[in-house]
Design a protein around this nucleic acid. Structure first.
Length: 398
RNA sequence: GUCAAGGUGGCGGAGUGGACAAUCGCACCAGACUGUAAAUCUGGCGCCCGAACGGGCUACGGGGGUUCGAAUCCCUCCCUUGACA
């Protein structure tokens, strides 16, 4: 088996831990951030850019790649990683999240297309946002798609819970998720047993349950009993507000095994959210807003630059006050962008909608997150994690 | 010089007697951003007072007029563009 998680160091006072995930395509030193390459592309960057920004792993999406360019195309390239010329470890998401929240993401220019999804125990019926064609996603189909996309880490099909759902609907989603994960596991086992190329994909089960401690624990127990190689935690509570995320994680921190990594799906909340999540045992996470914010001009800065909880560790480079500013985005940052370009120039690029602006800001934000994770890992290993956390967050909220 | 069309907020451009401090777009300002249907979306955008409902002032080239009421109608002047000389 080409997949393992080994602890390097466990923090004494918190659940924070440093470890190494080994995959057929290399190691991931944790805690780690995974940039999101939904459609086999981190918007604006080449794989060399990603590498230079210290990226260890990227995450792509089954829903999007299935609809376009299609599974066969990618299979012929040997997976989405060779397709995008990425040589390191990779993750794919099952597509459950996408289908679940399609209905609320209708965009004005695409309003002509049917966008309702219908979920039954059998699967998720949905209409393509591209051409309106009808499709169904089941645990088996999701596993087959992800098998073809050939990431090192794949996700079971789930139906994420939401604060906007009724109690009843959330209960259904929870029960259905357990059922689908079990089914995903069976199909995955079968696909792995038939494998001829000596590779291996690690299937992660997803813990649902929002901030309900009982459900979270029950779900974790189910995932461990079933024997998934890794654990993911999902649904809407792993989101923007670090305190709600913390509440969800607190339910399971004590029960995390040492030999399985915990992935937080879509972990939000900026650097503050990262510290709170790592405090509670998160080893790896992905987040789309890091790169999305880069595109809209929200750039991360260090405490040395004035970054703090109050300003969410970021500045808005599009703001008129940066026009003509000759300083780099951050004086502390060692990314390609900060080493070579000024705030004034980047301000100009984004305001003028020059594509180069997106590339430079995305490089910076990804480098920032990766560097933050490197610092956190180092602090855990050197027994000063809480010290680092306090330095960043000020008076700790924990 | 004659004829024609036109002059509206930072810009473009609607409105052609009351519902107009004036649609809309751009620019500008602020905010948001979860397993990316996002280089997107939301809000503000004459000045002053107010937390808000709201109130006051100044404004559709200048001046004058008609009218209870004018960005809108009439007179006159100035300016722009096009055609003819």
């Amino acid at each position: 088996m080409d997949f393992s998680f080994k602890l390097v160091k466990k923090d004494q006072k918190t659940h924070a831990r440093a470890g190494t995930i080994s995959t057929p395509h290399g190691k991931i030193e944790t805690p780690a951030f995974s940039p999101v390459a939904t459609k086999a592309s981190v918007k604006g960057l080449t794989s060399e850019d990603l590498k230079e920004a210290n990226t260890q792993v990227v995450l792509a999406n089954a829903y999007h790649l299935y609809l376009r360019p299609g599974v066969e195309t990618i299979e012929n390239f040997g997976g989405f990683a060779p397709f995008m010329k990425w040589e390191g470890p990779t993750i794919t998401d099952s597509g459950g999240y996408q289908v679940s929240f399609l209905w609320q993401k209708t965009r004005k220019k695409e309003q002509g297309i049917r966008n309702k999804a219908r979920v039954t125990d059998f699967g998720m019926y949905f209409y393509s946002h591209i051409d309106g064609s009808e499709h169904v996603l089941t645990p088996k189909i999701s596993m087959e798609i992800q098998h073809a996309l050939a990431a090192d880490i794949i996700m079971a099909l789930d139906q994420p819970m939401s604060q906007r759902f009724s109690r009843e609907k959330n209960k259904d989603a929870y029960i259905r998720t357990l059922k689908w994960e079990e089914e995903s596991f069976k199909v995955w086992k079968e696909l792995e047993s038939k494998r001829k190329n000596g590779s291996f994909q690690a299937l992660f089960g997803i813990i649902q349950g929002q901030t309900d401690k009982k459900l979270r624990r029950e779900c974790l127990k189910f995932i461990l009993d079933t024997g998934f190689p890794g654990i993911a935690i999902g649904d809407e509570s792993i989101g923007a507000d670090p305190r709600i995320t913390a509440k969800s994680l607190d339910a399971i921190s004590h029960f995390l095994p040492d030999d399985k990594p915990l992935h937080a799906l879509g972990l939000g909340g900026g650097p503050e959210g990262v510290f709170e999540a790592v405090t509670r045992g998160v080893d790896i996470f992905d987040n789309a807003s890091v790169t999305r914010m880069a595109r809209t001009g929200l750039l991360f800065i260090y405490p040395e630059d004035g970054g703090k909880v109050g300003n969410k560790f970021r500045l808005n480079i599009k703001s008129g006050r940066f026009k003509g500013d000759r300083k780099p985005i951050s004086k502390k940052c060692l990314c390609y962008t900060c080493k070579n370009y000024s705030r004034g120039y980047i301000h100009h690029l984004l305001v003028s909608e020059e594509p180069l602006g997106v590339r430079l800001t995305t490089i910076h934000n990804i480098h920032f997150y990766n560097d933050l994770m490197i610092r956190i890992r180092k602090a855990i290993i050197e027994d000063r994690f809480l010290e680092l956390k306090k330095y960043w967050l000020g008076r700790s909220r924990v």
